[in-house]
Design a protein around this nucleic acid. Structure first.
Lengths: 251, 251
DNA sequence: ATTGACATTGCACGAAACTGCACGATACGG
DNA sequence: CCGTATCGTGCAGTTTCGTGCAATGTCAAT
């Protein structure tokens, strides 16, 4: 394992969980705690995180609290979310994934919208409390801790009785050949099941996800009928996708 | 648990409630009171809070988040919730209803508790994000708008595969003859189904619910194995329930 | 192919931090 | 005034940390 990869993984874990423990990291990567401590020290020297006894915390508390917990994120992501939200038509049945981008998306839905929203994310459900016109269908199951979405057999079974017009799928990577991917196997299964039940699959793809392949494959890139990308995305980066017949919207 | 994280959590709790008690914090974090006192002393030295006998107060009164505090009643309801939360034993499978009292309840669960919590309320699920030892099982279904809990056939079916030790049932009325009742028919069905799957049913009953009958009956009062009432509740009001063999705890 | 400079890693060992317990002191309430 | 709860301090056990050092791997120049 490359040192650089390990450091990136540490930062990703930190971003996701809000904290990391030196001991847990050493077990996860199969290296000694000394090596992890060295990494943490160096990352702290670069200002990427804040070193504390036993592990590390984000350099600025706001970084994790706002972008992860409360969903406030970059302008690009917000623009994508707004663009994607505009695709929802009154009366439609819409599936919405968990994840920060999708939380943003439902925040951009008109408060008066009449629609049915299906979700396996409690966070999404809570966001929709004050949308009186929206009927919310919650997919149950075991909650996967990191992303707080329902997964497992119960979720898959419940999904079987859904028939939706659009599915907004959150992914961690969109790659021309490796396809759509995410960081957890169980999540991949659920996303695949959801995609099978929707007439259209829309993937909000912020800049850092384009041409990236994560550990677990959800399906071919063409499983997405539409990609929503940031306005600054280069034409070359998206040419592969348009060639495959995928519609690409710029936010 | 990271020391730094614990201190942050103490400050967050202080911000939310306007005060913290050393004893309560030690139980919540699963550390000795000495450790909590040390934390409080150090935070006081940094000026982050004001140390007082028994706990701590915000350094400046203005620091208290009043908007959040409105939701946190320091009165009987909070005491009931704390008392009820204390009934949960490590390793148990616990069903938690929706409703404000139950949200309070999970907030009082120790952060280090190892347990499985089953809920049909997205709000409860979201509250449990930062309890790493708790596995959350989400019951899906159509979300009943008023109380934001899953109801309907899908919820009933999912409940059928649950087997729990305790069920914390939120009700709007507890009456000696009219029994347990709530304000919505669908909710009544779900609560009945949940009660059937738990070995013990605990009903937190704040003062305004005692001897009240709402529109839809969940079951006989004796369907509850335990009532948790406010400390000021008169002996006469609860005599009927103890006569029925229901345990009554005073918060 | 060999050599040397350099980076990376793991281990050893003393230092520092964290935690819980014991004990006496202090504050609170009746 | 007294009993109880809370507090502060000292101390020991454990965990984590930082540094020095040796072993291993990489890469380029010879």
């Amino acid at each position: 394992m490359l040192t650089t990869h390990r450091k990136q993984a540490i930062l990703a874990t930190l971003q996701r969980d809000g904290q990391v423990l030196a001991k847990a990291l050493s077990e996860e990567f199969g290296v000694s705690e000394d090596t992890v401590r060295r990494d943490l020290r160096e990352l702290a020297a670069e200002g990427k995180l804040q070193r504390v006894h036993g592990g590390a915390l984000p350099s600025s508390p706001a970084a994790v609290d706002f972008s992860q917990r409360q969903g406030i994120s970059t302008d690009g992501k917000s623009a994508i979310a707004r663009k994607a939200a505009g695709l929802v038509l009154p009366g439609q049945v819409v599936i919405v994934d968990g994840g920060t981008t999708c939380v943003q998306l439902v925040r951009h839905l008109p408060r008066t919208l009449q629609a049915t929203i299906v979700t396996h994310s409690p966070s999404i459900a809570v966001e929709l409390i004050d949308h009186p016109g929206i009927e919310v269908i919650l997919i149950g199951g075991r909650l996967f801790r990191h992303s707080m979405v329902a997964v497992g057999a119960a979720a898959i079974e419940a999904i079987g009785s859904i028939r939706a017009d659009v599915y907004f799928m959150g992914v961690t990577g969109v790659h021309p050949t490796a396809g759509l991917s995410t960081g957890d196997l169980e999540e991949a299964y659920v996303k695949r099941a959801l995609a099978a039940r929707a007439a259209e699959v829309v993937v909000p793809a912020s800049a850092e996800k384009i041409n990236v392949a994560s550990a677990f494959v959800i399906g071919e890139a063409s499983a997405a009928s539409t990609l929503v990308v940031e306005s600054g995305t280069s034409e070359a980066s998206i040419a592969h996708f348009t060639d495959m017949g995928i519609a690409v919207l710029r936010a």
